[in-house]
Design a protein around this nucleic acid. Structure first.
Lengths: 140, 140
DNA sequence: TGTCAATAGATGACATAGCAGTGAGTGTTG
DNA sequence: CAACACTCACTGCTATGTCATCTATTGACA
């Protein structure tokens, strides 16, 4: 599983960088924001939905912001907080990149896995992921 | 799939670092050498069997060597080449770490996926991996 | 043998992730 | 209101991986 995802990830990464000029991590953030209400999330929420730690996110968002794809704005009622919002440009880039990205993923998996296999993997791992994320199977 | 493997990887990584004092990347190298004839491989072979680039491997092996778990030795008949060999200490650490590592992986997957699901994922992704690694499904 | 392309591995410069610690802001308690 | 614990996000330091490039060696060929 590790090897398979590492391989596809690497291919998708290269493709994305060549076509769009930004890495998968950006698309991940962009997509999270895209799916969020008003296209915005707090750093904390972004952290929960992504694979990064918060300090990693701070800098990731720095870079995406510098590229003009997202914008930081204050959170009304909590001056500690920061809300990260998709800019129109960010939205455009997301849309464009996402289509191509999905195409690459499909090509990689579609060309190598039967539909039944794809379904089996998706079912098993999606329930794995959504199952009990925050309460590991460990007993201690 | 990405999320699932990232999650398990992160848990396994922490566990390994706490117990053994080295990260998964090391165990990966150690295990490759362990499985190799005479417990040794050339850098190039290690590269093929791992998820690293060669330059990444150079430094990874540097660190593992500094810790005394592997040793570089010349390749008879090709003075460009380097053969990386497991030391007795490396072998011991591998054995110990590997057992615990497998236990963690089993716990994480065993506790969340049914045996049938595990089998389905394993079958699909192992054929994916072994299928046609070097000739992507792309047409260009 | 001399030249030249290819190969093996190492190195320099750089990008990015994590941990631990910082500082501002919040809300609870008296 | 003062004191305190907690939360949010950011920053310094450090670890590690990649790309492009470098050196040494090899092998092909005139």
């Amino acid at each position: 599983m590790l090897f398979a995802s590492a391989k596809v990830l690497r291919i998708a990464e290269r493709d994305l960088v060549e076509r769009e000029g930004f890495p998968i991590a950006w698309l991940d953030v962009l997509a999270q924001l895209y799916d969020a209400p008003d296209n915005g999330l707090r750093m904390q929420e972004l952290e929960e939905r992504s694979l990064f730690t918060r300090s990693g996110l701070t800098r990731l968002v720095d870079r995406i912001e510098a590229a003009g794809l997202v914008r930081r704005e204050p959170v009304p009622g909590d001056r500690r907080g920061v809300r990260v919002v998709l800019t129109p440009e960010g939205r455009r880039r997301h849309d464009h990149a996402f289509v191509e990205h999905m195409r690459v993923i499909e090509r990689e998996f579609g060309g190598r896995l039967t539909p039944a296999e794809q379904q089996a993997v998706a079912d098993a791992l999606s329930s794995f992921w959504h199952g009990d994320l925050e309460s590991p199977a460990t007993s201690g």
